[in-house]
Design a protein around this nucleic acid. Structure first.
Lengths: 338, 338
DNA sequence: TTTATTTACGAAACCGATTTCGCTTATGAC
DNA sequence: GTCATAAGCGAAATCGGTTTCGTAAATAAA
């Protein structure tokens, strides 16, 4: 039953395979009545075309890849939702690859794409990724790539980001307005553009408000969760303890909360916290968390939409198509004044 | 450059395509030196085999599908992590499909699998799914299916679940021990086995402790987030307001928190809350949330591992391979006594 | 020395849908 | 009535690995 292909279907109809194929593709070469007959028989026999044969012949797979560090993160899971929603609209399949922040994995994943497995790629690079050589290699094969959030600056293709610098600036400014005198920045990577842009926004805000900067106020959290917690605790136990913290990603905000809870440090009385975050629970945390909410779903949608354009419009270039969607700061209790 | 295939590679080596193919597959038919030469040339020319050609001929794609309701949920995202970790180990690719709780989508997704796109399927059915007919149809084509968490009871295949009944029983019992007299259960579906099993555990605990049950204590939350919130608020505003709540999924716990916040109802003083949840923020919520933590990552791993076995061991049957991994209750402040 | 077997490789079929090209018949133009 | 065109369909090539089968040379068995 489950083994009927184009040829067996054709023989049932006393037609040739080519005719049936054309009929199913609604070719003008085929008469309306034949198309009718073909469709009826196809549904009757429950014919489903073999996707690999089709992909092989047409050299396209209606499949896109999403390459990202992890999925257990509100930003990424929402972005995937956005991506999937447009992929489904357009009849595309979505392959998901997790790098777990490993550059080596990212490389081997991209390498595999040279086999034609996917028509296009959406990606958010790993924390370790030092450059875009591996991406350039497959882009050179004519496979379109759209970055979202964590981009490769050097690559000349579409990038969907949020206003990292500006929102980080505003976040820092908010802390200053709330009375913070010594503000720490929790970074996730030295090489990641978003981390650096957010750091620049933070720095510029400090400079503009004539607040002195200490190297120890920038804490690198480029390892696993346990290391983050240790680094944060260490920071909170030093003599010059910060009274404000800008966390560059969601994970670090929860780490700060846990660290403060363990150390008995009160938020926001002793330290105020603001974070880039898409946590659904932000409003019900103890205390509720002031967030810089990134437009995760929309970024996913925008990235996927651009990729679809690149795939379906022959001479559409991604080069000039970068897009910045602003984040929204939602003030809550974690940055409240006494 | 990026267009070299087996034949061009072969011609560079003055060998036939078949020889090169066998050499790359490490066939015993080929001499060691020839294999050496082939491999060297392959890496030099950066040869990557076309995955569709291979899949077509071998009738297998080293690709599995994961079909689930959504990804913006801690349980599912952690499960995906588990799945992906074993898929990667075994060299499998992972296609992700989101049903968004729609049965129609689930059907059309499964239908497409009849085209041979995937070798096996991991799935967690939608809230609406009334039966397993659509799954049976593709299982009948010889494609192995493993369910995780939200299973189709009627299907005779492997199912990875947690101890829904028992942990729900214990959760309810915990509320009773903490002094609750009227306990509500928030359901997500009438048809979903996990929702019903959890409800049965809840009921049996009430019965065993001689607590009278009212129909209004079981609140169906089978719609979108706004509807959940409304239903919960309505429940909390009725005369017989519950003093304890068992939430069957994570989403509903956050809805309860938000509802209580909006209504000025205090947790745990006025109502105690326990929920099935994998929220990383459970410990830092206000108040911290008592959870039934499901072994999400391990369930994903177990499901994927079984599927791999089914795919690679010819006469391995999934029928007797169901597995129950227990959940862990972590008591926190949301169920504290005064 | 002859026959049997192994080794190492190539030619060609194959997977199943798509697409080019060609052929026949019907229709239209003049 | 003749020639051009279009409509409708089929044969066969094609996509690029994989696999079967065959063959020549080398080695072993007799």
């Amino acid at each position: 039953m489950g083994k009927i292909n184009l040829r067996t279907l054709a023989s049932q109809l006393n037609l040739s395979a080519s005719t049936v194929s054309k009929a199913l593709m609604d070719s003008h070469e085929i008469s309306t009545e034949t198309k009718q007959r073909v469709h009826e028989m196809a549904t009757e026999l429950n014919y489903v075309p073999n996707s690999y044969a089709s992909s092989l012949r047409r050299k396209k797979s209606t499949t896109i890849a999403v390459v990202l560090p992890e999925v257990a993160d509100s930003f990424f899971s929402l972005a995937i939702n956005g991506i999937e929603s447009v992929a489904r609209e357009k009849g595309y399949h979505v392959l998901i690859y997790l790098t777990h922040e490993s550059f080596a994995r990212e490389q081997s994943i991209l390498k595999d794409f040279q086999g034609g497995r996917v028509d296009g790629i959406l990606m958010s690079v790993s924390r370790e990724t030092p450059n875009g050589d591996h991406v350039k290699e497959i882009a050179a094969q004519g496979i379109p790539v759209v970055f979202f959030d964590r981009v490769c600056e050097e690559m000349d293709t579409a990038k969907i980001t949020t206003d990292d610098f500006e929102s980080s600036y505003k976040a820092t400014q908010h802390l200053i307005e709330q009375g913070c005198k010594q503000i720490a920045y929790l970074s996730i990577s030295e090489s990641l553009s978003i981390s650096n842009k957010r750091m620049m926004g933070y720095r510029e805000a400090l400079t503009d408000h004539h607040i002195r900067q200490y190297p120890s106020d920038i804490v690198a959290c480029n390892n696993d969760a346990e290391q983050h917690l240790l680094a944060i605790k260490k920071m909170m136990l030093q003599k010059r303890r910060p009274d404000g913290i800008v966390a560059s990603v969601e994970k670090l905000a929860t780490a700060v909360y846990i660290a403060c809870k363990q150390l008995g440090i009160l938020i926001p009385r002793q330290v105020k916290v603001i974070s880039f975050s898409n946590l659904e629970t932000a409003a019900i945390l103890n205390p509720s968390l002031t967030t810089i909410t990134q437009p995760a779903f929309d970024m996913g949608r925008a990235a996927a939409t651009l990729l679809m354009k690149a795939l379906n419009k022959p001479n559409f270039s991604l080069k000039q198509e970068s897009l910045v969607i602003p984040s929204v700061i939602t003030v809550r209790d974690s940055t409240a004044q006494d």
